[in-house]
């Protein structure tokens, strides 16, 4: 098996790597690029601990081949905080004690961010179904769901504030992005 040369973009940075054709994106991230924030809990797309975004779509990186990500954009847990400023979800996970052992946490955070980017006002049921592809064995999910709902609330408040500011500055209101309708999520997110 000869190695494949791949040019891609991870967390906004152009990245090049070589990998064997049988390596998953997760293998590449962890073993070739030293990005061990994405975790392998099963290797079969059932646990979500390896969740990343591929061109904005939530996928299990263990089900994506490393060789096929050339020219795509990948977002991992390592790109979630901006410098020393945590993403609001990261902050809320800490405040709500939404992690115990922490192995599933990166996957949950990536998945939850992807949800809130689509829908900043999810119901509890919507949160629970969206996160149904991420397994957590420690928390019973209670505090995770609360942290996500609480983040969404803060994000809506912040959005309302900034749009009020803009309105008072008599700028035209930003076009409201319609949240895409969610379909069968588990199937969708697992299709690479």
């Amino acid at each position: 098996m000869s190695a494949v040369h791949v040019s891609t973009n991870i967390n906004g940075d152009d990245v090049e790597f070589v990998c064997r054709p049988d390596e998953s994106l997760l293998d590449v991230l962890r073993d070739r690029l030293g990005m061990t924030g994405s975790k392998e809990g099963c290797g079969t797309g059932d646990c979500g601990a390896c969740s990343v975004e591929l061109d904005g779509r939530l996928v299990c990186s263990c089900l994506v081949m490393g060789a096929e990500v050339g020219g795509h954009k990948i977002e991992t847990i390592e790109g979630m905080a901006q410098g020393d400023k945590l993403h609001p979800l990261q902050q809320k996970f800490l405040e709500h004690a939404a992690l115990q052992c922490g192995i599933c946490t990166p996957g949950f955070l990536v998945a939850a961010r992807n949800l809130l980017e689509r829908n900043n006002d999810p119901t509890e049921t919507e949160v629970r179904y969206w996160l149904a592809g991420n397994l957590c064995r420690c928390t019973g999910y209670d505090k995770i769901v609360r942290a996500v709902l609480d983040t969404a609330k803060d994000m809506r408040k912040a959005a309302a504030k900034s749009s009020a500011k803009k309105a008072s500055a008599k700028k035209p209101a930003a076009k409201k992005k319609a949240a895409p309708k969610k379909t069968a999520k588990k199937g969708a997110r697992h299709a690479a």
């Binding site: 991992t76 945590l86 922490g102 990166p106």
Partner: peptide, 23 residues
């Protein structure tokens, strides 16, 4: 009281090193 845990930031940023993360 309920302060944030000391290993928390490492665990929400992917920096915490678990069993398979050593090389």
């Amino acid at each position: 009281t309920r302060p944030n845990r000391p290993d928390g930031v490492d665990k929400v940023t992917g920096r915490a090193r678990f069993g398979a993360d050593f090389a």
